[in-house]
Every structure is written in structure tokens, then in C-alpha cells.
């Protein structure tokens, strides 16, 4: 088992390194002049500089070194936790992200938890309800929820809950109340996607022969679904959990923009607009790290959910 976990950790680190490298390559090997771009971000116009001034400017941001040297020194910095310096804001990237991390994390976490519970509950209910009209409505909800753009949901929420009813603050970060609307905005999409997958999974699971065995024991339908349906239906859905958390992170960029929350999402948006390469690089790597950690957690939880998985390998059914 420890060997399996160590292997998964090594794999996770590999993915993280690959994400960093690809982002680095994309940002630095773009067909434009990366140096002019970055100096431009710092407010320096390269055209008007003398060669000597250009050289000092480059040296200030470490841009005069060969590309490979930059790559390795930046990578080494990342490994030690030094994320470099923002060119536009003249501030260390680590402290920039550190300042904005808490609101984004709390939003993503809240949205992920709400989406997970709501999506599971919806699918559970949809497969439990026998009354056809109710069942029809419940099974159509996911595609309905997934078909609204998030900014539209956000605007509708602001219109009703803030402007018309005055219940919640429209923008900013002020305690839990300001967390409600962005959380709803994100989790409607994520929950819909999860529910759509889970509904199919419940359908499959509840038509399995062992469900007949359970019902033949005399268990109620509720008991059968709870004890024999839920866990087996969740198994296939765990594989998309990583994707859904990724969706939560990207959705937070939209939510933070609409609700004017000063988080990582907003920082990312600003950094891309200002072409602030070190910040973009750090944020992309951070997003990849979150993604990798979630998938790692899912992989480690999987054997606990499914006893057939031993040491990370599915036991082959002999034909």
C-alpha cells in the first residue's frame, strides 16, 4: 500500500512539473517578443530605450539570461517557494497570491461542497421518486441548470437578492453573506454536471442483479437505495470529481469578476490583461497543483470506497 501511495505522489509531482513546463514554454515561446512584453508590463517602452538602458532593464527582471537558465532558476525558485516578482505590480508574486488566496479558497471550497451535496441529493431524489411528473422534472433539471451562462445567473441573483430584496451584499467580501451568491452561481453548473453523471449511474446501479437480491430480502426501497445503491452509484462518478473541482476553480474567475471579489480569479484576469508573465505562470501552476491534489485524494480514497481496488489496480475478472 505504501508503495502505491508513494507511486501516486511521484506521479502527482510529475504532472505538476509538466504543467509548469508547458505553461513556461507557452508564455516564453510565443511568437511575440517576451522581453518587450514584460518590460511593457512594467511600463517601460523598449523602443525609447538606449541599448544600455535596455540591458539594465532586462537585468533588473532577470531577462538577460538565456531561456534555459531562466527556466531552471525559476523552477528552482518554485521548488523553494519563491514564485518570482510581479512585473506590473513590483511586488513578490507569493505575497500577491497570499493576499488573495483566502477569499478564493473559501469560495471554491464552499462551492465544491454545496455542488457535491446538491448534485448527489438531486440525483438520489430523481432516482428514488416514483411519481412520474416529479421524476420528469427532476431528471431534466441538470441540463436546465447547465444551460445558463454563469454570468447570467450571477446577474439575476444580484438583481433579485440584492437590489429587489436587499438580502445580500451585491459585491465585495463582507463575511459569509457575500459568499452566498457566488457560491450559488458556481455550484449550479457544477452540481448539474455531477447530477447528470450520477443519475445515469443510479439508473445503472439500480438495475443490477444485486439490487433484486436486496429487494427479495424484504428491504424497503429506501433501504435498498441507501445501503446498496448509493455507494455503488458514486463509484463511477468519483473519476469526474477532479474535473469538477477544476471547473469550480475556473468558474471562480467569472464569479469573482461579476461580484467584484478580490481573489485569485480576479488577480489572474488582471495579470493576463497586463501580460504579467510571472503572475500568470504562478497562478496556472497553482491551479494545476489544486487539480493534482484533488485527483490524488480521489485516487487514495478510491480503494476505501471500492474494496475491489487493491493497490491501485482493478482486479481483473477472469473470463
Amino acid at each position: 500500500m505504501t508503495r502505491y501511495i508513494l507511486g501516486r505522489f511521484a506521479q502527482a509531482l510529475g504532472v505538476l512539473w509538466a504543467a509548469y513546463t508547458v505553461t513556461f514554454a507557452v508564455l516564453y515561446l510565443l511568437p511575440s517578443d517576451p522581453i518587450a512584453l514584460q518590460l511593457g508590463a512594467a511600463g517601460i517602452e523598449t523602443d525609447k530605450l538606449t541599448p544600455a538602458e535596455l540591458h539594465t532593464a532586462k537585468a533588473r527582471f532577470g531577462l538577460d539570461r538565456p531561456i534555459l537558465e531562466q527556466y531552471f532558476s525559476d523552477l528552482w525558485g518554485f521548488l523553494r517557494g519563491d514564485l518570482g516578482e510581479s512585473i506590473a505590480k513590483q511586488q513578490s508574486v507569493a505575497s500577491l497570491i497570499g493576499d488573495r488566496l483566502a477569499p478564493t479558497l473559501s469560495l471554491s471550497l464552499a462551492a465544491a461542497v454545496v455542488a457535491l451535496l446538491a448534485g448527489t441529493a438531486l440525483a438520489y431524489l430523481a432516482s428514488y421518486v416514483r411519481w412520474r411528473p416529479a421524476r420528469l422534472v427532476l431528471t431534466r433539471l441538470p441540463s436546465f441548470g447547465a444551460s445558463f451562462p454563469q454570468f447570467f445567473i450571477a446577474l439575476v441573483l444580484i438583481q433579485f437578492l440584492s437590489f429587489n430584496l436587499g438580502l445580500l451584499p451585491a459585491t465585495g467580501i463582507r463575511g459569509w453573506k457575500s459568499l452566498v451568491m457566488p457560491t450559488i452561481t458556481i455550484s449550479i453548473l457544477v452540481a448539474s454536471q455531477l447530477a447528470a453523471v450520477l443519475m445515469r449511474s443510479f439508473d445503472d446501479t439500480l438495475s443490477q442483479p444485486y439490487i433484486v437480491t436486496a429487494r427479495a430480502k424484504g428491504l424497503s426501497r429506501a433501504a435498498v437505495q441507501w445501503h446498496h445503491g448509493l455507494r455503488n452509484a458514486l463509484l463511477p462518478a468519483t473519476t469526474i470529481l477532479g474535473v469538477l473541482v477544476g471547473l469550480t476553480v475556473t468558474s471562480s474567475i467569472i464569479a469573482e469578476t461579476v461580484f467584484s471579489r478580490n481573489g485569485i480569479g480576479k488577480l489572474a484576469q488582471e495579470a493576463v490583461l497586463a501580460q504579467d508573465v510571472p503572475v500568470v505562470l504562478a497562478i496556472v501552476t497553482l491551479a494545476a497543483a489544486i487539480f493534482v491534489v484533488v485527483n490524488l485524494v480521489v485516487d487514495l480514497l478510491y480503494p476505501l470506497l471500492d474494496p475491489r481496488i487493491v493497490q491501485g489496480q482493478r482486479k481483473e475478472v477472469t473470463i
Binding site: 437480491t213 455503488n232 471500492d306
Partner: peptide
């Protein structure tokens, strides 16, 4: 082969 709940 399929008559028992695989996760209990």
C-alpha cells in the same frame, strides 16, 4: 457473480 453487492 453479480447477485451480491460488490461493496459490502
Amino acid at each position: 457473480m453479480v447477485g451480491l453487492n460488490p461493496t459490502r
